[in-house]
Amino acid sequence: MSSTDFQSGREALGARLRELRAETGLSGKDFAERLGWPASKVSRLQAGKQTPSVGDMEAWARAAGKPEVIAELKARTAGLETTYRSWKRQLAAGHRARQEQGIAETAATILTRGVEVVRVPGLLQTPEYARYVFEQNAEFRRTPRDVDAAVRARVRRQEALYDPDKTFHFLIYEPALHASTSPGPVHVAQLDRLMGVIGLANVKLGIVPLAAPLRRAPSHGFWIYDRRLVIVETINTEMWLADEASLELYERSWDWLSESAVYGTQAQRLIGRVRAAFGSA
């Protein structure tokens, strides 16, 4: 589902909500009073300018005197949420729940491919590096800080790296190695971890040098799970894409970027040069 499809779906849902509200004979303002909501929220939902929660849909159906349409409205909302999942909603109780989703997706996947352009992939993060990632995300998104639980869940997910029935292929754009989002000693330990990962039998780590010729510059990170799902993170949402067009597009992006990557000893040397720039930390 493209962003245009998503907006069309949201507008269609808004039209359905407007229809249900109109059947009550109430104006938008009066309907909002019945719900105990600001009138602006009713207006935005009807215009397809806000993504409703499941709770919103239950309340709307009951306020319209149509509890029998709750299932329909929930299904419509789930259809939107399957593709575009807001971080605010996903992290309402903290990061742990999303990490456990990651554990489930990794467990269900044989070949996991991950691209990161601004940070180290979660599956390769040290606990200390991950801690800073979660703390910064919680502060930025103003979500609950369940950092200890989130770190433990991330470490559990990494156990899959040692499963001989699974294969992992990571591409990291060199700037992610330089991005200093944690204290020097933590960052150096993270770079050491990356060099150690290169020796794992079922893990392939490619580093795309900053000076490498590129068929297309990487714009953001993404993850491909087998050939059934692509997950893309943006500032305010996470996209879960399963349509054929998206799979083809992201696989092409993967193929083009991998052409510029270095592996094995070359990758270790590149990481080592970045590590040396941080000194003994």
Score class of each variant (00 low, 15 high):
S2C: 06
G9R: 10
R10D: 02
R10K: 13
E19N: 01
L20H: 10
A22G: 05
G28R: 10
D30G: 11
L35Q: 14
P38Q: 13
Q46N: 11
S53R: 11
R62L: 14
P67L: 11
E68G: 13
E68T: 14
E72S: 10
G79H: 12
G79Q: 13
E81T: 13
T83F: 11
Y84A: 05
Q90T: 15
L91I: 01
R98G: 04
I103H: 03
E105W: 13
A108C: 06
L111H: 15
T112M: 03
T112E: 09
E116N: 14
R119A: 10
G122A: 10
L124E: 04
E128H: 04
Y129G: 02
Y132T: 02
F134Q: 07
A138Q: 00
E139H: 07
R145D: 08
V151T: 09
R152Q: 13
L161D: 05
P164I: 12
D165G: 14
F170Q: 06
F170N: 09
L171K: 01
L171F: 10
E174P: 02
E174H: 07
E174L: 02
P175Q: 00
S182Q: 03
P183N: 05
H187L: 15
V188S: 07
A189V: 01
Q190K: 02
Q190Y: 02
D192N: 01
R193D: 04
G196D: 08
V203G: 00
G206V: 06
A217Q: 11
W223C: 02
D226R: 00
R227Y: 07
V232M: 02
E233P: 00
E233G: 05
E233M: 03
I235L: 12
T237N: 14
W240K: 01
L241T: 04
D243K: 05
A245W: 04
S246F: 09
S246R: 01
L249I: 06
E251R: 10
W254M: 02
W254K: 10
T265R: 13
Q268A: 07
G272A: 04
R273W: 07
V274N: 00
R275Y: 01
R275M: 11
